[in-house]
Computed example of a mutant assay.
Amino acid sequence: MSGLLETERAGCTKLLQSMSKDDVFSLCDTVTNKLIVVENVTEAIGTIITFTKNAEELLKRKKVHRDLIFKYLAKEGVAMPPNSEKNKLVRRTLELWSSGKAWFDEKLSGETNETKQRLTSDTEIVKAEVDFDPQVLGQQFCQWFFELLNSQNPSLGQPPQDWGPKHFWPDAKLRLLSRAGSEQMEEFMGAELVSLRLLALTKDELLLLCPNLEPHGLRTLASPHGLVLVSVAGTIHRDRACLGVFEQIFGLIHSPLENNSWKIKFVNLKIRGQDALGGTETAAPALTYNSTELQLLCS
């Protein structure tokens, strides 16, 4: 029997689903010592999970390549330096699974629409009426947003998730400031244009945005008028190259008529390329915005 926790089972399953068919069958033979014959990938993955003693053992298998784990973490919104050794990626993956967040997202994705709506609504009602914690909301929002946006990058080789203007208020605004050689400012108005410009970052420019969800990389602030500001820093990658860092501020407003969800009112995105960083460390960038600057955006 498998010694995996439910969180680890969900994470390992998702990771194995991103492997090639041949690698999955080969790994199944290794884990079972070729004593069990499987007929398809789904059966092979289930067998691997059943006969795996612990998650670390599975992650350290030769067929579970370093790049596979790196891409998995990127999809989950976990920032890691592109030159990280496999052992570090394994350790970070185990930390992610032990937090329980990956399992909750996976459980929601596997529920029926009716159940998913009820779970999401119940969660939002608890936040709004009982114990609303802006920092928790910020962490959950960033994990959701960057996984969704990064899934549009074709280099990850996964089906894109449901991106679109529906996640934004109709009068949403985007301000994009990029410093890579020269400084360039772009501004967009309306849910459609804002959605398309952000989509182009990953789908057309093939970028991966990896947020730093540690305390020094994430800060939130709630105004008495219902606006919640989520500010986050992170690194930008293309394939295995780190291109620079970003800081992003989201303005979120609760939408009680749409399953108690939070929709994006505005986005301020500041990108700095490597040449604008002066050789500083980019593995886990920290925010430069302070609480006073965020307070001004609430006014």
Rank of each mutant, 00 (worst) to 15 (best):
S2N: 15
G3W: 13
L4G: 03
T7E: 09
E8H: 06
T13D: 07
K14Q: 14
S20Q: 10
V24Y: 04
S26N: 10
V31F: 05
T32S: 06
K34D: 12
K34Y: 14
K34F: 13
I36N: 02
T42W: 12
T42H: 12
E43I: 13
I45W: 03
T47A: 07
K62N: 08
V64P: 02
R66T: 10
A74G: 02
V78F: 00
P81C: 10
N83V: 11
S84I: 05
E85M: 11
E85N: 10
V90Y: 04
T93I: 08
S99C: 09
S99G: 07
G100P: 00
K101M: 04
A102S: 13
L108G: 00
E111H: 07
T112G: 13
N113C: 13
N113W: 13
E114W: 13
E114M: 11
R118I: 15
L119A: 13
T120H: 14
S121H: 13
S121N: 15
T123S: 12
E129Y: 14
D133Q: 11
V136Y: 12
F145H: 06
F146W: 11
L148S: 05
N150S: 09
N150V: 05
G157T: 07
P160E: 05
P160A: 09
W163A: 00
W163D: 01
F168R: 04
D171S: 09
R175A: 09
R175H: 11
L177A: 15
G181E: 04
E183W: 11
M185H: 14
E186R: 10
E187Q: 15
E187W: 05
E187C: 15
F188R: 06
G190L: 08
A191I: 10
E192A: 08
L193Q: 15
R197E: 14
A200F: 11
K203F: 11
L209F: 12
P211D: 04
L213C: 06
P215L: 10
G217W: 01
L218D: 00
L229D: 02
T235R: 05
R238H: 14
R240G: 08
A241C: 03
E247N: 02
I249A: 04
L252Y: 03
N259C: 08
K265Q: 15
N268G: 14
L269A: 06
L269S: 09
G273H: 04
G273T: 01
L277R: 00
G279H: 12
G279V: 09
N290G: 13
S291Y: 08
Q295M: 14
Q295G: 13
Q295T: 15
